[in-house]
Each structure stands twice: as C-alpha cells, then as structure tokens.
Amino acid sequence: QEIVNPESYIKHPLQNSWSLWFFKNDKSKTWQANLRLISKFDTVEDFWALYNHIQLSSNLMSGCDYSLFKDGIEPMWEDERNKRGGRWLMTLNKQQRRLDLDRFWLETLLCLVGEAFDDHSDQVCGAVVNIRTKGDKIAVWTADYENRDAVTHIGRVYKERLGIPMKMTIGYQSHADTATKSGSTTKNKFVV
C-alpha cells in the first residue's frame, strides 16, 4: 500500500476566512452599488489562486479599490467591527505606483493572511488599496483606535514589513475623524 504524504493533497488552512472586494467608481450608481464581493478564501493555496487570477493594483483604473477583509466584515466605516476603529495609512506619490504599489499591496496581503501581527492580529479587520490620480493609498484597518498596544504593535510590524525607512513615519487615524474631517487631512492618533 502506498502512503501519501498529507502535505501533497491537504491545502494549508488560514487562521481566518477572507473576502476580497472590488470597488469601481461609477458616478451614476451609489457607493454601495459600486462595491462588489469578488471571492472568499481560507487556505494559502486559494489565496494565491485568486491573487494570480486578478489584475495587479497598478493596472486598475483610477477610482478603483481592492479591499481584503475578514469574512463577515464589510469594507466600510459603518460596519459594526470597523466603526470604533481606524487605519494605518500609507500615501504614495505618483512615481510609487510604478515602483512600490504592487509590492506594498502584496506585502499587506501577506501580513493579513499570515497573521503577521502576533497576538494583536485579532484587532485587524482588513486592508484597502485606493487607486487615485492624485496619489494611491494603502491602509490596514483595525477594530479599536483606543487599543493603543494593538494599534502601535501593528503599525511597527507593518512599517518594518513594508521596508519603510526609520526616519519616515506613517500615521494612524480613526474612521470617526476621517468621516468628519473638514479639510483634506485627518489628524493622526498615533505615528510610528
């Protein structure tokens, strides 16, 4: 009888099940109508099957977003799991679409599905990449802006994983502040 190594036929389960969403800016429709669930996955193999099948972020049209969220969390501030939360925000300049965008987004995805934030990974809700003419953005969303330990741990690990130089900083903003801001910038609750 032949013994088959389970490694060769059992997919590698992820800690969480994830949903990938796509947003396409069509001004004739409501914001929610422009948001589509692409697919869900809960194994390493299925993550790659999806990632390898879809367009790179840098090929998307301006106004489009990808969002990866834990299953059951919708990629919007209003979701019960997001509304007391906030985001670590990376704003990219125009040159970075060519140089950094795709590798930053892939690194972000690997941080999420691999649970890179240790015991604080439970605080992660998801991540979003926004493709915009004036400059693309990538953000990691967490559940509770008042959870200083979790927010700062996630920020430090994330900054290191992206290879952001020590002398540069990234900021964390609450969704409540982003939703009610008057100007174009939101004040940072934390900086790493």
Binding site: I10, L14, Q15, W48, Y51, L110, G114, S121
Partner: peptide, 20 residues
C-alpha cells in the same frame, strides 16, 4: 495556537500546481 505563516512560506506557494 494561531496559524501564523511568514512571508517566505506563503510566497513558496504562489506558483505551486493546484491541489487536485
């Protein structure tokens, strides 16, 4: 425990043939 996968482990599966 938590199923943590580091980046090199995950990247190793990107171009693996699909499970049957």
């Amino acid at each position: 425990g938590k199923r943590q996968y580091n980046r090199d482990f995950l990247l190793g599966f990107q171009f693996m043939p699909a499970c049957v």
